[in-house]
């Protein structure tokens, strides 16, 4: 390098500063940009619907959606719709996720269970669960049973796959350590395998619970008088875009809430991660 400098001097030029080329590719936390995008989009739609170049058939006025939402709140209907939906979501997702974690751990631990169930899970994973709704209605009744079943079934398969993947990924050297200290099988599962699989299980839950919210609308297709999904479906069949969007916004908020809850859980349970 010294040579280059000498040469530069000889050519009558000064030293050249090394060009920086290490920029980019490092995500930075710029939370406000997301907010700005939202605000700009909504403002654009508001302006477009008011000035008329977006027709009433294309999009509702954001201000009308807000008004619908406020009305929902004030009339108490919001909670009349939210309460059954949240119950369905919590019970269905709890059933599906706990069964999924249970079966997933068994698949991860026992070769026979793995050989027997992995093909089965692979076979039922791609089934659109909505297609099975009429069947669930026959099996579990048109009331809450079929709705719990649909949500549970929908969350079950991704949880199983995430869980046994997570169990497979538990550091084998930790298990060998447990064995070398003479820990019982049950202790190894409880103290090493399960905590070790927790990051994978939680990130699987993130996806499973989002699917549960998606399925909420499907679950409320059949025989639900109240519920956010039923509300959205009704708004859709009435071409009431304000109610439709108000319902969709509620689902989005629900999704954000669930994601935040899992984030909190991760912070509590996975603080040990590097």
């Amino acid at each position: 390098m010294a040579d280059t400098g000498a040469e530069n001097k000889r050519n009558g030029e000064g030293p050249i500063e090394v060009r920086f080329r290490g920029g980019g590719f490092a995500p930075k936390s710029l939370r406000w940009v997301g907010v700005v995008v939202f605000v700009v989009l909504i403002a654009l739609v508001q302006w477009g619907t008011e000035s008329g170049w977006i027709s009433a058939l294309t999009l509702p006025k954001p201000s009308d959606v807000l008004a619908t939402f406020v009305q929902l709140w004030e009339s108490g209907l919001l909670f009349k719709h939210l309460q059954p939906s949240l119950t369905r979501l919590v019970i269905g997702a709890a059933l599906g996720a706990s069964a999924g974690i249970g079966i997933g751990v068994l698949i991860g631990l026992f070769s026979y269970v793995r050989a027997g169930l992995v093909p089965l899970v692979a076979a039922i994973f791609p089934i659109p669960k909505i297609a099975l709704l009429p069947l669930f209605v026959i099996w579990f009744g048109i009331d809450e049973g079929s709705k719990y079943a649909l949500i549970a079934f929908g969350t079950f398969t991704p949880t199983v796959v995430a869980t046994y993947g997570a169990v497979d990924n538990v550091d084998r050297s930790l298990i060998r350590m447990g064995q070398s200290f003479g820990l019982s099988w049950f202790s190894i599962v409880r103290k090493i395998v399960l905590p070790g699989a927790m990051p994978g299980i939680l990130s699987g839950l993130r996806i499973s619970l989002a699917i549960a919210i998606i399925l909420l609308v499907a679950a409320e297709m059949l025989g639900a008088e109240y519920g956010i999904g039923a509300y959205i479906l009704e708004a859709g069949s009435l071409y009431d875009l304000e109610r439709l969007f108000a319902g969709v916004v509620i689902l989005s908020l629900l999704g954000v809430l669930v994601s935040a809850l899992i984030g909190l859980l991760e912070k509590r349970l996975l603080g040990w991660r590097v």
Partner: peptide, 21 residues
């Protein structure tokens, strides 16, 4: 009466036959 939304005529027929509605 209470009204049960079932989306499709096929689903209503199924629910009626099986006594769900």
């Amino acid at each position: 009466m209470s009204f049960k939304p079932l989306q499709k005529v096929g689903a209503i027929i199924g629910a009626l036959k099986s006594g769900q509605i």
